[in-house]
Design a protein around this nucleic acid. Sequence first.
RNA 1: GAUCCGUUAGCUCAGCAGGUAGAGCAUUUGCCUUUUAAGCAAAGGGUCCCGAGUUCGAGCCUCGGACGGAUCACCA
Length: 573
Amino acid sequence: MQLSDQEIVRRKALEELVKLGINPYPQAEYKVNAYAKEIQEKFTENDNHFQEVSVAGRIMSRRIMGAASFGELMDSTGRIQIYVKRDEICTGKDKTMYNTVFKRLLDIGDFIGVKGYVFVTKMGEITIHVKDITVLSKSLRPLPIVKEKDGKVYDAFSDPDQRYRQRYVDIIVNESVRETFAKRAQLIRSMRDFLNNKGYLEVETPILQPIPGGAAARPFVTHHNALNIPLYLRIANELYLKRLIVGGYEGVFEFAKDFRNEGMDRFHNPEFTQMEMYVAYKDYLWMMKTTEQMIEKITVNLHGTTKVQVGDNVIDFKAPFNRISILGAIEQYTGIDVSDLNENQLREVCKQLNIGTDVSMGKGKLIDEIFGEKCEPNYIQPTFITDYPVEMSPLCKRHRNNPALTERFELMVNGKELANAYTELNDPIDQRLRFEEQIRLAEKGDNEAMYIDYDFLRALEYGMPPTSGMGIGIDRLVMLMTNQPSVQEVIFFPQMRPEKLMKVYNSDDFKTIGVPDLWAEHIINAGFAKPDDLAGEKPTVIQQKLNGYRKKNKLQIAAIQIDEITKWIENLK
RNA sequence: GAUCCGUUAGCUCAGCAGGUAGAGCAUUUGCCUUUUAAGCAAAGGGUCCCGAGUUCGAGCCUCGGACGGAUCACCA
């Protein structure tokens, strides 16, 4: 492994700690009785609070001035300044703990525990006056140094690639990232509370499914050895949740990880979280009200107001949200009434509007295309789009006033779909026909049309009460609520192409061409990363470089001779 | 999948008509007992993403590749 100079320094410090009898990775519990945030919030100079604190965390900065030092310690709640004075942590004659351990062997990133009392410095900063330091864990890699003053961040650790691949570093160094994920947790808690308060049952259903139903998307396939069958990672949990409604639960919900084997971009991660809920005896009108109430409540819980800044827009989640039918929306933005058009006429309209189509698209898909192209981006404020054509909603009940439509809504916010809901189809005969229609579409080449789940049909045949169901994208909701421009910012470990490790050569690679052990240790550091690098150089140049390195580092080995080097180069060929 | 942009020290980023690779922070050493992104001073630190080519000479130019970002396409 090639180490940078800073990593070498830290490894040496580690060895020295051990020599001093200090275990850099101790086993024992370190008892903590206070946290940074708590001290910052509650300490006042007149009280006798916090006079014997014990705090543990990472050293995030140090300012050493002779026999006294300031530093910042970061624990799970935030940062607090520490003041370390030599004669306070070394009460006897031996000043090693300060001079050597604290000043030289500890680094930014190391975990320590400190005991002491809290006071306020002349500069007015709440600070722990340290009387005792315990090394808790040595850090061998230097952290990025991010500094901040008056809300302005300097030298931010900002490369998305590194931040997502090494999220642990991102959350050490970027406080706002920790806040985003804290908000995510709070949002989910708030939604769960809302649903629990209604008395619905939180359930878990299979992620490995023999038939990937409930949505139209390409699934990931895996294989079960014992059963010797393919299994799919779920694209939705809808059909399982509806089985539970058949089973007699009044309301069920699940926070579900779903998996879709499709493109990745800033709105799509292959695995994402959806909350789906189903409630018996309700319809989509009720569900609209419930959805807007739930989102309003979550927003207020998170922000104390219904208004949220998202990019350049302020979005107001105050219920009720606007409602418009999909055909009405199309008429609004294109001036064309498409409600009575057949497939060919729709194709004509698409052409006229400059929307690409292909033969696999049925009537439903064509309407969806027009809406997606001409209408969807316009709905910035929360808007329910309702009453979708029957062809694009195979699990949804037909509209009570128009059998060509369904009782479905999608919630659009900031020009994107956030939630999707139905008055669920519970007529088993109609459901079977709709599945069969999907199969016909599949044969036309729509690779997202559904498989038929016969057990689900069997369940419906036992009878499912009238039910309304809704799915809401948690990642997208978190993006809105935290004003983040991409899903990758709200998922701890977004999917990335695997890191490609470059072949790293070591001393053994040099030994194979005849470099003696003593030199093989040093040759990489002397500037030859791999054996082939020797081939491009004249032997005399190599000799100079190696012997120069020997002199500079005062190596206790004999100077290298030119004929040796010539032999290595011959061995290379 | 297409187009554009990026990849240089641990981190953030400069660099040029092709001529010995730079800054700030971090690191090391010395001085300094209350500092506030940054005390003062000095020093060390690089596979300029990888590979091929052009050239006397490539971080820079050409071609190919890797990875990332943005936009578009795809997308119930």
